[in-house]
């Protein structure tokens, strides 16, 4: 890699701005995402800022199992983001459809509609797991492209 592209990759890794999009989730994942953005978890350490508009965002953090109603909107918001862009699927529904997998009214997973770079399973995943997922996604930017990673959420104790 040339010096310029290395500086650019460094900047991309250090400054991911996110946009949060709910594709028909039950709001549990959304509450965890919002919790991860509070001062307690201090996402600004990693340069992460929440942006209101897709034009400013680098990473789309999606929750929900993509209902058929919202499918077009999800695709449109993804297309409104400038390149390079990444998608993180948060929660079991966003990863695979979860308990709604195979229902007539959902598409069962974000990756059926738009390309997903990282999956954070859990119902809902803890804020730590979401942060871990986003930071691991950024780690892959430095390395040569590999298949998407799957982070392991903190499993509830039986």
């Amino acid at each position: 890699m040339s010096v310029l592209s290395r500086v650019m990759t460094w900047a991309r890794v250090k400054s991911p701005w996110i946009i949060h999009f709910n594709t028909g989730a039950c709001n549990a994942c959304d509450i965890e995402i919002v919790a991860a953005l509070t001062p307690r978890f201090d996402l600004e350490r990693f340069g992460i800022l929440l942006k209101g508009t897709p034009r400013h965002a680098d990473v789309m953090v999606c929750s929900g199992s993509v209902s058929r109603q919202i499918e077009d909107r999800l695709r449109r918001i993804y297309e409104q983001m400038p390149e390079p862009k990444f998608v993180v699927a948060v929660g079991a529904c966003a990863c695979s459809g979860g308990v709604f997998q195979g229902c007539y009214n959902v598409r069962s997973g974000i990756d059926k509609v738009i390309p997903v770079s990282a999956y954070v399973p859990g119902c809902p995943p803890r804020p730590e797991a979401i942060i871990d997922g986003v930071v691991k996604l950024l780690g892959t930017l430095q390395a040569p492209p590999k298949p998407p990673i799957r982070t392991v959420g903190i499993a509830p104790q039986p």
């Binding site: 500086v7 650019m8 460094w10 900047a11 991309r12 250090k14 400054s15 001062p39 307690r40 201090d42 600004e44 350490r45 340069g47 034009r55 680098d58 409104q80 400038p82 390149e83 390079p84």
Partner: peptide, 28 residues
């Protein structure tokens, strides 16, 4: 601002990284 909220806050190069990243993004 971060310290007033009792958190760590961004590293010293953060505004520079934001600027360089935006320079490298697609302009719509």
């Amino acid at each position: 601002y971060a310290r007033f909220q009792n958190r760590m806050g961004p590293p010293w190069f953060q505004p520079f990284a934001d600027f360089v990243k935006l320079l490298g993004k697609e302009t719509i």
